[in-house]
Simulated scan of single mutants.
Amino acid sequence: MSSVTINDVARHAGVSKKTVSRVINNEINVSEETRTKVMAVIHQLGFKRNPLGMALAKNRSLFIALLADNPSPGYLQKLQKGILQCCSEEHMGLFLYDCNYRSPTLVYEIEEFIDNTLADGLILVPPLSDKQELLDMLQRKRVRYIRIGPKDQDSDDCVSFNGVKAAYEMTQYLLRLHHKDIAFVLGHPDQESSHRCERGFRNAIADAGIALNEQLLVQGYYTHQSGVDAAATLLNRTPRPTAILAANDEMAVGVLYEAHRRGIKIPEELSVCGIDDISLTTKVWPNLTSMRQPINAIGYRAAFKLIKKLKGEVAASNDSGADIFDCELIVRESTSQPGR
């Protein structure tokens, strides 16, 4: 038995092929009566869309791609979930491309990936979102893209979170607990989110009228091991800090590991907290206090804006033209007043 075609649906519903296409693609310029009639015929005949045929007809692959070189698997997992949800709703597929940001042939490799997959558009995760050579290549090839967390986050091609505000509010929370010797583990120096979080931390300390001890700022790289290494440096200080804030949860969990290894009680002798609120925060002991970044929503919004671009439509945005999400403080058992 031959498969049911869009022409069959149109004939049985008494409408044009174009009208059926509009119903299938959930376009707004179809009356509710016509939409109901067409959908009833689709269910009656068991019509299923042919993705390959649609792609050929539109000269598109109907796939977008997520390009990332990110050391936090928990972050990427939540980001992908949001992107996949939007792709499912918009009948798009998703390619995942794991990059080596420091590869000397990175731009060539990505160009080859685009040519081989014919991906309709890209979502770029930091630090790829600020790599000018890559952006120039995408402009030359007229490949549409959305960037997550770039330096110029007021641009209409980006989605981001307010890292300055997140770090500021977390530091304020520690100050309200009467911590004064607060250390900060910086994120990767190549990623703008690291610099934004550092600004938030510094601003909160300054606004509290506390002289910042620069030795309490230690470089990290958004990895678990860099959190371990930073904690080893900080916990060798005399006096050691009473609280450590890490610019992401992977590093904060590394801080917890090193503190446990040294027999330091958390939170009685040391408060530890992070930013992102990935699933790992509730899989360690004590559960980690964190600023919840709406990573799922950021992924969804990035995909939504990209797909709208591909359709030649404009996604409604705020006054600045960008989408900048706030974080939410989630208090768990890893923080308390010093010497509790």
Rank of each mutant, 00 (worst) to 15 (best):
D152G: 04
G274Y: 11
N59D: 06
I110Q: 04
F95L: 08
L56F: 08
D130Q: 08
V228E: 13
M137H: 01
K165E: 05
L122W: 11
E133M: 10
D323Y: 08
L94P: 11
N203W: 03
A119C: 11
Y145S: 09
S2Y: 07
I83M: 05
Y173L: 07
M170I: 14
R49D: 03
E214A: 12
L62Y: 13
N236Q: 13
D136I: 02
C158Y: 06
L67H: 04
K58T: 07
F325M: 06
L106C: 12
G14E: 09
T171F: 13
G209H: 00
K308A: 14
A68G: 02
M1L: 10
F161I: 06
A252W: 01
F201Q: 10
I64H: 03
T117V: 04
Y257V: 09
L234P: 02
D115E: 08
L245F: 15
G121L: 03
V38F: 01
L56I: 09
Q80L: 12
E33L: 07
A166M: 06
N116E: 10
A211D: 05
V272H: 00
P241E: 05
E250R: 05
I110T: 03
H91C: 06
M54H: 07
L174H: 09
Q139H: 10
G339F: 09
S320C: 02
E214I: 02
L256G: 00
L66I: 14
E89W: 02
S317E: 13
K141A: 08
T19C: 09
Y300C: 12
S336C: 12
D190A: 11
L234N: 06
L79R: 10
V23P: 05
A55F: 01
R22C: 00
T5E: 10
L67F: 08
R301G: 09
L217Q: 14
Q132W: 06
S194C: 04
S61C: 08
F95M: 09
T289L: 03
V9W: 02
A208N: 06
G163C: 06
P104V: 11
E269A: 14
R199H: 10
Q337D: 03
E250Y: 03
L235K: 05
S16H: 03
N50K: 07
A167Y: 00
S334K: 02
F161P: 04
D181R: 15
K265A: 15
L52Q: 04
A297Y: 03
C86M: 02
K151I: 14
A315P: 05
V331Y: 00
Q215N: 15
P104I: 05
C197Q: 13
I330F: 00
T117A: 02
N29E: 07
V314A: 10
E109P: 01
E198Q: 15
D319I: 08
R49S: 12
T242H: 03
M1D: 11
R261Q: 15
E258F: 00
N213Y: 00
G274P: 09
T281D: 04
P127C: 12
K165P: 05
T105I: 03
V159M: 06
A13W: 00
H43E: 15
C273Y: 14
R301Y: 03
D154M: 11
P267I: 13
G339I: 04
D98V: 07
E89S: 12
